[in-house]
C-alpha cells in the first residue's frame, strides 16, 4: 500500500512536470479549471456526507427486526444500485419537476450522487456490522447491556474501523461519478474541460491536465482515508500498525 502510494505520487509528479515542461501557454487554462475543480470538490464532500448518513441508516435498517424498515432499505438499495447513476441524475433533474418538485442542478447532483453511493455503502455498513465477532454480542449481553447500548458502544465502533477501507474506495468512485454532473449543466471540472476544448481545440493538453487533477484529488482521498484508518485503528487496536 505504501509502495503503491509512493508510486502514484511519483507518477503524478512525473505527468505534472511533463505537462508544465511541454505545454507552453497552458497557464491560460488554469483559472477556469480551478473554479471547476472547486465545484467538483464541493459536490464530492457534500455528497459524501449524505452518502455516509444514507448508508448508515439503510445499513442499520437492513439489520432491523422491524420488517417494514428492512423492506424500505432493500428497495432503496436495489433501486439505486440497479440503475445507472446518470439515469438517476436525469430522473431527478428532468422528471421530478413533472411532480412539482423542482430542485436546482446542484441539489440534484448532491442528492443523486449521495443516494447512489449511499446504496453501495449500505452493503458495506451491513457487512461490517455482521462481521463483528459473535462473542462481542454475548459479552455485552452478559454485562446486561441493552440492545441499543450494545450497538452504540460495542458493535458500531468496531464496525466503523472495519468499514473504513471500503469507504475509501467508494469515495473515489464518488469523485469519479461527479464528472456526470457536467451533463446536468453544472460547471464542474469536466464541464470546464469540455468548454475549453470547444473554444481552444487543444484537446490533448486540456483533457490530460484534467485527468491529472482528478488523479490528484483521488490521491488526496486515499491519503486522508489512510490517516483516518491509522487513527481509528490505533483507538481499537485493529488494522495496520504503521
Amino acid at each position: 500500500m505504501t509502495i503503491r502510494l509512493a508510486f502514484l505520487i511519483a507518477l503524478m509528479g512525473f505527468t505534472g512536470g511533463l505537462m508544465v515542461a511541454s505545454f507552453a501557454g497552458f497557464r491560460e487554462f488554469i483559472p477556469g479549471l480551478l473554479m471547476g475543480a472547486w465545484v467538483t470538490v464541493q459536490i464530492t464532500v457534500l455528497a459524501a456526507i449524505l452518502a455516509v448518513v444514507a448508508a448508515m441508516a439503510a445499513g442499520l435498517a437492513k439489520l432491523s427486526r422491524i420488517r417494514v424498515l428492512r423492506w424500505i432499505a432493500n428497495i432503496y438499495v436495489e433501486i439505486f444500485r440497479g440503475t445507472s447513476a446518470l439515469v438517476q441524475l436525469f430522473w431527478l433533474y428532468f422528471v421530478l419537476p413533472h411532480f412539482g418538485i423542482s430542485l436546482s442542478a446542484m441539489t440534484v447532483a448532491v442528492v443523486g450522487l449521495g443516494l447512489n453511493v449511499g446504496a453501495y455503502g449500505a452493503e458495506v455498513v451491513r457487512g461490517s456490522i455482521q462481521a463483528v465477532a459473535k462473542g462481542q454480542y454475548e459479552a455485552a449481553t452478559a454485562l446486561n447491556m441493552s440492545r441499543s447500548l450494545t450497538m452504540r458502544r460495542i458493535i458500531i465502533p468496531q464496525a466503523v474501523a472495519a468499514m473504513l477501507p471500503p469507504w475509501g474506495n467508494l469515495f473515489i468512485e464518488l469523485l469519479k461519478a461527479t464528472a456526470l454532473v457536467s451533463l446536468i449543466t453544472i460547471t464542474d471540472l469536466t464541464f470546464r474541460a469540455y468548454q475549453l476544448n470547444q473554444v481552444t481545440l487543444r484537446t490533448v493538453e486540456i483533457f490530460t491536465l484534467v485527468l491529472v487533477v482528478y488523479l490528484a484529488l483521488s490521491l488526496v482521498i486515499t491519503i486522508g482515508m489512510r490517516a483516518l484508518e491509522r487513527r481509528v485503528g490505533a483507538d481499537f487496536g485493529t488494522g495496520r500498525v504503521l
Binding site: 502514484l8 473515489i172 469523485l175 469519479k176 461519478a177 461527479t178 464528472a179 456526470l180 457536467s182 451533463l183 469536466t190 474541460a193 469540455y194 476544448n197 484537446t203 483533457f207 490530460t208 484534467v210 485527468l211 482528478y214 488523479l215 483521488s218 490521491l219
Partner: peptide, 10 residues
C-alpha cells in the same frame, strides 16, 4: 482513478 466520462471525451 479518473472518471470514465473524461476518458470518453478524450
Amino acid at each position: 482513478s479518473t472518471p470514465l466520462l473524461i476518458q470518453i471525451f478524450f
